[in-house]
Write a protein that binds this DNA or RNA. Sequence first.
DNA 1: ATCTGGTTTCTGGCATACCATATAACGAAA
DNA 2: TTTCGTTATATGGTATGCCAGAAACCAGAT
Lengths: 228, 228
Amino acid sequence: MASARLDIQPIEESPSLKSRTYDALKAAIGAMKIYDQDAELRLDERALSLQFGVSRTPLREALAQLEQEGLVRIAPRRGIYIVRKTKAEILEMITVWAALESMAARLATQVATDADISSLHNLVDTFSSAALGEHMDEYSDANIRFHAAIINLSGCKLIADITNGLFMHVRAIRQRTIFERDRARRSIVDHKEIVEALEARNAERAERLVREHTLRLRDHVEQFVQLD
Amino acid sequence: MASARLDIQPIEESPSLKSRTYDALKAAIGAMKIYDQDAELRLDERALSLQFGVSRTPLREALAQLEQEGLVRIAPRRGIYIVRKTKAEILEMITVWAALESMAARLATQVATDADISSLHNLVDTFSSAALGEHMDEYSDANIRFHAAIINLSGCKLIADITNGLFMHVRAIRQRTIFERDRARRSIVDHKEIVEALEARNAERAERLVREHTLRLRDHVEQFVQLD
DNA sequence: ATCTGGTTTCTGGCATACCATATAACGAAA
DNA sequence: TTTCGTTATATGGTATGCCAGAAACCAGAT
């Protein structure tokens, strides 16, 4: 609506080339099937700087950040490589995830509003009825959103940040995860129980359910996913 | 001892200026009392590059990494500043710490050897007898080593990495933490109970004790530490 | 054909110069 | 003295060029 006064918005300062390059690279790596046999893991600074239309300096700073984040490895005068996580590392990530999300569930029982908790039903019920065998992708997305929602309910920004970082890596092996029908069905039951525990404000139970749920995923990956 | 053959050692490649600058900067920031009133939080690229005897390029890459790690904030054409964490952020860090270390305790009950767990006694008993009032610094160090030891016992490298990163920030406010005698005494009792639970391979109890122990620290900081 | 030493090329590390903008310093007008 | 427009300076952002080491290539010797 119009106003008699100037409605001033703060000028959003345009992100630097460095940060934009960083985002673009991260997205590109995220979209890549790095665990495919024929995946090209080698990156070339000069080629990338041409493709992005940016000089090597901001590109290198972006790469340095990605290296610290563990997405690439920079070998001096050897090359820059996208890192493939080992299975052990993936398992550790899922373990950390379990620790953080279970703490998030605990926090959620203390700080989330009833309305917020109720909104979780939308994410669970959608797929209780859906034909599971055919919508594994959608199920997978809803699954992720459910877990992200719990983390948000905790109100702990740091937990959200860390798990987001982990997700980047874990997502890459999602395509390799065998989502059998039984696992998906079990998962939905778990989710329902988690919501119930949250609604009952039962911190211990919510924490335990979330932890066990995620640790089951870890065991499943350990047993059935082959990476190398 | 001498040998008839050349005993060749692999040449360790010298760390890049970037990584050395990174380490030096991180150490310098860590050693700084950044929460003091008169702390100089502003950094100057050119001045630093002179002090380190390095050009701006590797220095900037080091700074970019520190920025992503949350230690500094780079404001384009404004300056580079060491960040002071807010109290809320510190509390979140301690919460995450609690989540991770309690998971570490759980893992430790599953994977640590009896000998490893027994070695924790050294870290606990040292200070049961010590005069608490006078050796707060030593107590604090032993305290930290105890918690680090539990995390190591879990065998989870990722938990160790993340908590190390958190420690960097939390350490800065340690000097502001009031370690009353009673808290220290209580802490030692907690530690003993934790070791007992680990020895009994009681995952649930070990996890709970560690979590509650660390969350008590969080509540203590929330109540008694003033940052701004 | 294979091995060996040299040479060329490729690639990341680093230094430097320049740019754009935020901030400070300044000075003239009110 | 205060205000406001101008100029100067400071500071991070970016581009570019050179360097050193690693890998690939090549030619001559065996």
